[in-house]
Amino acid sequence: MSPRIGVITFPGTLDDVDAARAVRYADAEAVSLWHADADLKGVDAVIVPGGFSYGDYLRCGAIARFAPVMTSVVEAAAKGMPVLGICNGFQILCEAGLLPGALVRNEKLHFVCRDQWLRVENNATAWSTRYDQGAEVLIPLKSGEGGYMASQETLDRLEGEGRVVFRYVGGNPNGSRNDIAGIASENGRVVGLMPHPEHAIDALTGPSDDGLGVFFSALDALKPLATTA
């Protein structure tokens, strides 16, 4: 049986459809999860997709983190379930405390929408094993509040523990500290990134298919579970 990967929809989510499509491209089953429903429907992993949940009111992700489904996601993550946050999803995971730091308004205030080169800095997380260490990938970035901020102490810890998963190359698009595009939790099961791998899964509709590796990686992370089930 193929792994079941949940994709959450909040009011204002935009990229749940593309995230579900990326899951299917990776030969997994995409399961729709609803923000107001705490039931994770027995999924093996969860994707918190991009968009503008609750209109970005208060702060990006600040209200979404209190949605019933997020309580379940936080509990499941504590037990090791792989969780991926993309863009607004990354912001939500930071607000929920699953990842350290916060995302703030882009340095130049402009909304950035472009194909962005990233370097894979850690290919040992649940969402990056299909990449070669140091590989450079082309993934769309589209965000107005993508500046990654954290205390110097937190940044030092992330760097020291190898928890920077993706780093911007060819120029920092938004003022993120240390050019950070994506980070992982301590156990490498929770990953958040601002660029959109789900928009780069097919050369027909994206700048590359470099993003597919993120979703195939999750299958590898779930394999031990799948074979014992």
């Binding site: 703030v104 308004r105 882009n106 340095e107 130049k108 205030l109 901020m149 003022g175």
Partner: peptide, 13 residues
């Protein structure tokens, strides 16, 4: 308020 050490691009604008 944004912490003093956090860049405040809106204030700067």
């Amino acid at each position: 308020m944004p912490k003093p050490e956090i860049l405040d691009p809106q204030g700067q604008a």
